[in-house]
Nucleic acid binder design. Sequence first.
DNA 1: GGAATGGATGTTGTATACAACGATGGATAT
DNA 2: ATATCCATCGTTGTATACAACATCCATTCC
Lengths: 224, 224
Amino acid sequence: MKNAKVNAQTIYESLKEMITCFDVRPGSRITETQVSEYFDVSRTPVRAALQRLEVEGFLNIRPKQGCFIRNIDLVTINNYYDVRLELESMVLRLISEGKNDQELIDLSNDWHPEQLNYGLEITDALKAAEEAFHVELSELSGNNVLVNYLRDISDKIRVVRRMGFPDENSVLFTYDDHYRICQLLLHKDLQQAIDEMKNHIRKSQDTANNVSLKQIYGKKSVFE
Amino acid sequence: MKNAKVNAQTIYESLKEMITCFDVRPGSRITETQVSEYFDVSRTPVRAALQRLEVEGFLNIRPKQGCFIRNIDLVTINNYYDVRLELESMVLRLISEGKNDQELIDLSNDWHPEQLNYGLEITDALKAAEEAFHVELSELSGNNVLVNYLRDISDKIRVVRRMGFPDENSVLFTYDDHYRICQLLLHKDLQQAIDEMKNHIRKSQDTANNVSLKQIYGKKSVFE
DNA sequence: GGAATGGATGTTGTATACAACGATGGATAT
DNA sequence: ATATCCATCGTTGTATACAACATCCATTCC
């Protein structure tokens, strides 16, 4: 890796990306020396990045032994989904009590099923946009604590969530769901908006549960 | 400070305690050198502790400038309380769907209004027990993600929460509330348990909003 | 043969020196 | 008097050396 402005921050971001995209295998071990040689820096900024990742729950540092990438655990993933369901419902409730109609209209238009702003292809950009929709929606709640927790959940379920696009049909459904939820909110139909959101999230959760984790664990790690 | 097994972990814990109890004033600046001299260690373990505290939101590290203790902000505190209300309701729902009757009975007995296990005096131990009750309750939900978020919330609202005991009466009410919530859950009366919990939490939130923050900001910082 | 021992190696934990950058204040020019 | 520049100092960021401990494996002892 070229040493173009590599610092603790960029190392942190790179490692986090590698971990959440499973470029390093869950359960595998990485050492500070390995990473520092990979990025061509000293151990100091690497340590900072690794320690932060440990606090955020992406890996586990065992004293004098090494850093072990956290295993995926379907029970925990489901726990995240359950909490997400509750918090996103809260988001909708707060939005319906506030007055952010213009922002809601904009968000709604972004996902208009006839405009297909993000295309129909299953690209990384589309998946990122799907994730961003939920974050932007939460920001309309006006509760930043809520936003931060939902961001954290997004980080933790990213991989399995991105497997929730098996075909183009699922993409169309996403446009429909997002658009409809916004419209229901605009028409102050909170309860149905919540129901739609729950279905929307449960769909993603179901595919997560059906995914064979073998395709994840089969990948080769970057640091091997 | 004597150098008896002072390491990054203990520095982290000490600093966190100081910050959440306002032994260091919000908004004030501390430097790595200050802290390292205070604990009589090098900057290295201090940096680890400070960086962790930054990730957890207790302070803000400005490059080449210093670490600034995060200010208390009543809006954010209220945001935490609002999310807490939602998540503790979820806890009750999950408990009512599970089967942890024995643990519930134990917890209930701990707070029996006629036994007064934790006394009537407004001590630190009592306040810690109040906090522990909610954590232990959440653990009965079986959802560890939920437990972690509630722990985080506890950390963030600790100070204002602990001001929610103005007199002995409030202590008695705490026994009543805790006991009643457990009993309602045991009798599968979920909705009323949730209502009681909401009242219980709102009481704490109200006192938080009425507290004059001056008594917090008036304290003298340890590192000055 | 099996268990205990001891050394070699690898890893994180800590101390320290230096680098990079921001802030401050005084000197100087206009 | 005011604005600009420059040097100094303080602070965090990084590199590196060393310390402490865990693990592994060969050797030794019974």
